[in-house]
Design a binder for these strands. Sequence first.
DNA 1: TAGCAGGAAAATC
DNA 2: GATTTTCCTGCT
Length: 304
Amino acid sequence: MEFTVPLDTPFSLEYTLESGQLFRWERMGEGWFGIVSGAGIKVRQEGDALRCSSGSDLLDNNFVTNYFRLDEDLDHILASMAKDDVITKAIEKFYGLRLVRQDPWECLGSFVLATNANIPRIKKMVSSVCTRYGESTQFEGDTYHAFPSPEVLSRASVSDLRALGLGYRAPFLKHVAKSVAEGKVDLTSMPTLSYEKSQEILLTELFGEKLLLGVGPKVADCVLLYSLGKDEAFPIDVWITRMIAKSYPNLLPKPLRRRLAANAKLRLSIGEYRRVSNSIRSHFGVYAGYAQQYLYMASREEAG
DNA sequence: TAGCAGGAAAATC
DNA sequence: GATTTTCCTGCT
C-alpha cells in the first residue's frame, strides 16, 4: 500500500537510518528500503513528508509514525539534553536524527551478533540468519525474509548457525532465542518496567548461569534504548568511549581518565561501565540516550 | 580485577 | 598481501 506521512516535526530519515540502530535498511535510489515486521517498505523523504510504499497493510501511516517516534516533540528532547558545546554542535550537525521503536526481539537478536564486528558485517550476519530461517515475504516481485522468531532460532543447530558466518556468536544467539522462547525473559513486560529493573532482568544470572548469554551491559543498553523506550539508557561502545575521553574527561574517574588519555585499553570493565554510565546520565538527564546517538554520529564523523 | 580468547570480515597499512 | 580493527562478552 502507498501512503504519505506528513511531517510537522523535525526529522532526518537519512541520519536516523545511518546511526547504527538498525541493520535491515539499505539506500535505494532517492530513498530507503527496509524489512520491518516481516514486510518490505520503501520510504523517501520529500521535504516535509515521507512517501511510503509497503508490502503489508500493517505497515501503514500509524505504524511508520510510531516506528520513527514522530509523535514526540524532538525539539523539547534536544533542548533538555543540550548541556554543553560539544553536544550542541552534534545536535546542529545531525539535527532530525531520532531514536526508533524497533521490535525488541529482533533488536536483541541483532545486537548479540554485534560484538567484535563492524556494521557492514553485522548487516551481513543478520541478513544471512533471516534468509536461512525467516519467513519469506514478497515485495514488488522480489522475495525477502523476516527476522526469525525466537522459537525457530532456538531450534536451529549451532553448527548451522556457524555455517552462516556467525562464529562464536552462534551459540549465544541460540541460547538467547531459547531463553526468550521459553519465557525466561519476557521482553513484552519491559516497556512498563523501569530502566534499572529491565536492565537487571536482561543481565540476570541464575545459579551462576546467565539468562542471556552474550548480553552484557552495552548490548542490554542498546535493546533498552532502541526497542523498549528507555531513553536514559546510554550504550557505551568504543566510539562513545573515545568521544567521552576526548570531550568529557571530567565525567570520568581519574584513573580511567589517565588510561584513556594514553589511548590504552578502550574497553571498560563492568564496574567502570556502570560508573561512567551513571555519571553521563547525571550530566545529560533523562534523554541521555538521545545524546548518545548524536555523539555516536559525531564521533564516527570525526574519525572520517 | 586483569587479561585473554573468540571467528570472520572490513579497514588499514 | 599482511596486519589491525571491528557498536563486546565470557571465562579464568
